[in-house]
């Protein structure tokens, strides 16, 4: 039992570092895409007058916090090859764009400025698509 656990731990630590970063990036992107798409759905419902601003603020607040945690967690990764460094930069940049778009929506809703929130829809759509692409990396 103990030998099995030790072997599993050692094997887990000896994986291809590029692959590990790719897997991590994909997982991070899928989680981030979820928050971006939630924000987009909320703004679309607001736009269609199907949702009150109060719960919308709450939902976007939650999405922003979750996205911030996800982005912070990925930024602590250690890329060890040139290829993984490029991926690291690309994912961080995509996450920054996503955080910026969601934060802009949160600020707009905080100011009850629905027009400003709606203007972020295109950015949210783009961020979601970029994150979806990164999310497919692990396949």
């Amino acid at each position: 039992m103990a030998v099995g656990v030790l072997a599993a731990v050692l094997l887990a630590g000896c994986g291809d570092p590029d692959q590990k970063l790719r897997d991590n990036a994909a997982q991070t992107a899928r989680t981030a895409a979820s928050d971006v798409n939630t924000t987009r759905l909320v703004v679309e419902q607001l736009q269609a007058h199907r949702l009150w601003i109060q719960p919308a603020r709450r939902m976007v607040d939650d999405a922003e916090k979750s996205l911030g945690t996800t982005a912070d967690s990925f930024s602590t990764q250690q890329p060890s090859t040139e290829q993984s460094a490029r991926l690291y930069e690309q994912v961080n940049s995509t996450l920054d764009d996503a955080v910026a778009a969601v934060t802009a929506v949160r600020i707009a809703l905080g100011n009850s400025d629905l027009a400003a929130a709606e203007r972020q829809l295109a950015a949210l759509q783009l961020s979601g698509e970029d994150l979806d692409q990164v999310g497919e990396l692990a396949k």
């Binding site: 899928r30 989680t31 895409a33 979820s34 798409n37 939630t38 759905l41 909320v42 419902q45 269609a48 007058h49 199907r50 949702l51 009150w52 719960p55 709450r58 939902m59 939650d62 979750s66 979601g128 979806d132 999310g135």
Partner: peptide
């Protein structure tokens, strides 16, 4: 289909909002 993972109670309520709007909420 939208790749949304549920992590808050607000998200649990969202399908009803999409279906019925404010009354549904």
């Amino acid at each position: 289909p939208a790749g949304i993972q549920v992590g808050t109670l607000g998200q649990v309520a969202l399908p009803v909002v999409v279906a019925f709007g404010k009354i549904g909420l």
